[in-house]
Amino acid sequence: MDSEVQMQAFASAELGLALGKNFVIADQDLSFGITPKFQKLRTYALIASVQDFDADNAEDSMVEKSAFNFDLGAAWHYENWRLGLSVRDIIQQEIDVKTHDGTKIDSYKLNPMATIGSAYNGDFVTVAVDIELTKQERFANLNDETQYLRFGIEGNAWDWAQLRAGYEIDMQDNADSAITAGIGLSPFDVVSLDIAGNYAGSNQLGASANLAFTF
């Protein structure tokens, strides 16, 4: 009961506008996109004995930072084949991690992340693989870098509904492998609703929802 626990956490939220355009260059179909976005970054820290540990007390240590950033992407299309490259968070961000009394104990880096991917896109099924070319650095004083290899498959019902499944592996061996699943609804290709989740054990659960309109 005299043992000490040190907790560090990072959270982010972002609001952006995705812009993209298709081009034909040397008889090749190419797409380019950019997403300017506003980010809100937060860190939390808590050092306490096992007996006194309460995660809610980490709110007292919150450090918050607002930032502007943007993502870039490019894709090549040939019949049913796709090859893409994306770079997220072009402008590297760094935010301090402090205890409730203002003592800095670490920092968190949001570094640019480059990913390359390839896919076969058929009428009723899509199979894809992508690999992160760079490591996500995360906390400076911890060995917690991640770099993922991902596989996925999607079944498509006449472009109105999609059912997806995937698997991801951390090549840095700092995070458990995870399975992912999702469903998408896109009637008339005007409104798109995507709901997804991932599972890598009782300590790693996630969910996301995305609503998009195409004009």
Rank of each mutant, 00 (worst) to 15 (best):
D2W: 02
E4M: 11
E4S: 10
E4P: 00
M7G: 06
F10E: 06
F10I: 04
S12Y: 06
E14T: 07
G16C: 07
G16F: 02
G16W: 02
A18M: 04
A18T: 09
N22P: 00
V24E: 14
A26C: 00
Q28H: 12
Q28W: 04
L30P: 04
L30F: 13
L30N: 04
F32Y: 13
G33K: 04
I34E: 04
K37D: 01
K40D: 07
Y44T: 06
A45Y: 08
I47D: 11
A48V: 02
V50H: 12
Q51M: 08
Q51T: 13
F53Q: 11
D56W: 00
N57F: 05
N57T: 07
A58P: 04
E59Y: 05
E59G: 11
E59S: 12
D60A: 15
S61L: 05
M62A: 15
E64T: 15
S66I: 03
N69A: 05
F70Y: 15
F70D: 09
F70K: 08
F70N: 08
G73T: 10
A75S: 15
W81R: 07
S86M: 12
I90T: 10
Q92Y: 01
Q93D: 14
Q93S: 13
E94H: 04
E94C: 03
D96T: 10
D96Q: 13
K98S: 12
D101F: 03
G102L: 05
G102Q: 07
G102D: 10
T103V: 14
K104Y: 01
D106P: 07
Y108L: 06
Y108E: 07
K109Y: 03
L110M: 12
N111W: 03
I116Y: 04
S118Q: 05
S118C: 09
A119G: 13
V127R: 07
A128T: 06
A128E: 11
A128I: 01
A128Q: 10
V129Q: 04
D130A: 02
I131E: 06
L133V: 09
T134C: 03
Q136N: 14
Q136I: 02
F139E: 09
N141R: 13
L142A: 12
E145D: 14
T146P: 04
T146S: 14
Y148P: 01
E154C: 10
W160I: 09
L163M: 10
I169W: 03
M171A: 08
M171Q: 15
D173C: 00
A175F: 08
A175S: 13
S177M: 01
A178N: 06
T180L: 14
I183L: 14
G184S: 10
V190A: 13
V190G: 02
S192N: 13
S192C: 03
L193E: 06
L193D: 07
L193R: 05
D194Y: 01
A200V: 11
A200K: 08
G201L: 02
N203T: 14
Q204D: 15
A207N: 04
A209V: 15
A212I: 08
A212V: 11
T214V: 08
F215L: 13
F215A: 09
F215H: 06
